[in-house]
Design a protein around this nucleic acid. Structure first.
Length: 279
DNA sequence: ACTAGCACCTGATCGC
DNA sequence: TGCGATCAGGTGCTAG
């Protein structure tokens, strides 16, 4: 579910609600939610006070008044909610962090999300060490990102989704970025000039910035912020989920194709199929 | 070293 | 009404 704008929305919500709070009691209710740790390892953070909520790409982590950090990934359906203690347990409640006045809850229908206790190395938890900087990071270097991108020998959309090239982009914003840059998702990277790749990365950064300003994209209640509210960027999507709808630029019907087990949405006129010559 | 493909889950929806 | 097939905002492991 959540891509960079949604995860950043969650990060901001957490920062506003739990920084300075102490986890008085932690209860983990699902083995798969703990990633590589034991339930006991997560629960051993009880008593810790939250100092910061950090993020790289789609990876979040909390820092405490002790060396360990709590890393969280939302996967496809994870969410954090700030709830009153009296609220009934959600159907897919995976972990509960009891604070002074209310509770932080981790809820995850599909169980692809996870929590883990780790330490930092160069300021990043081990599970995120391989993740590239995202375009919202103040250290993000466009030239270096273009160079890494150009080195990949694959289709452009695969590189855009590769979190080791640029992090934060998922299936929605990949399709939206490619539409903005007028590139067909199956175009081989070898056929793109570096100026075009740079344009594409800038489009990704722009569309995610716009989505963040709308609180992200919510198709249903699988993505909501920590207060249970939806984002409004769905109404601004040009191609994702718009199969058969007119392209906002030229009016041609949007197409959907499937490759590497995911859907890609694009305008067949603005983003013409690449020629297959000379691979 | 690098890439493609699939496995990991639950639930909603659609066609028969 | 039911039942199988398909689809869903992601990542990591493995085979080649």
């Amino acid at each position: 579910m959540p891509e960079l704008p949604e995860v950043e929305t969650v990060r901001r919500g957490l920062a506003a609600n739990i920084v300075g709070e102490k986890f008085k009691k932690i209860e983990v209710r699902h083995e798969r939610a703990t990633s590589k740790n034991s339930l006991a390892r997560i629960e051993s953070l009880s008593g810790a006070k939250v100092l910061e909520v950090n993020r790289r790409g789609k990876f979040l982590w909390l820092t405490f008044n002790r060396p360990e950090v709590l890393v969280a990934h939302l996967g496809m359906s994870g969410q954090f909610l700030i709830q009153p203690k009296s609220a009934a347990d959600e159907k897919h409640l995976r972990a509960r962090f009891v604070m002074k006045r209310n509770e932080l809850r981790f809820i995850d229908q599909r169980t692809f999300g996870w929590l883990s206790v780790e330490t930092l190395s160069d300021g990043v938890p081990s599970s995120a060490a391989h993740i590239a900087l995202d375009p919202f990071d103040e250290e993000f270097d466009l030239t270096r990102a273009v160079n890494r991108f150009s080195a990949r020998k694959t289709q452009v959309k695969k590189a855009l989704l590769d979190q080791e090239v640029i992090s934060g982009v998922g299936n929605i914003y990949a399709d939206e970025s490619l539409w903005r840059a007028r590139i067909h998702p199956e175009t081989r990277i070898e056929k793109l000039k570096s100026a075009k790749i740079q344009e594409l990365i800038q489009c990704a950064s722009e569309v995610m910035t716009e989505a963040l300003s709308q609180g992200g994209t919510s198709f249903d209640d699988l993505y909501i912020n920590v207060n249970g509210e939806s984002g409004y960027f769905e109404r601004s999507l040009a191609v994702y989920g718009q199969e058969g709808e007119p392209c906002p630029r030229c009016g041609t019907a949007i197409k959907r194709i499937s490759f590497s087990n995911r859907s890609s949405h694009f305008c067949p006129k603005c983003q013409p199929t690449p020629r297959k010559s000379g691979k």
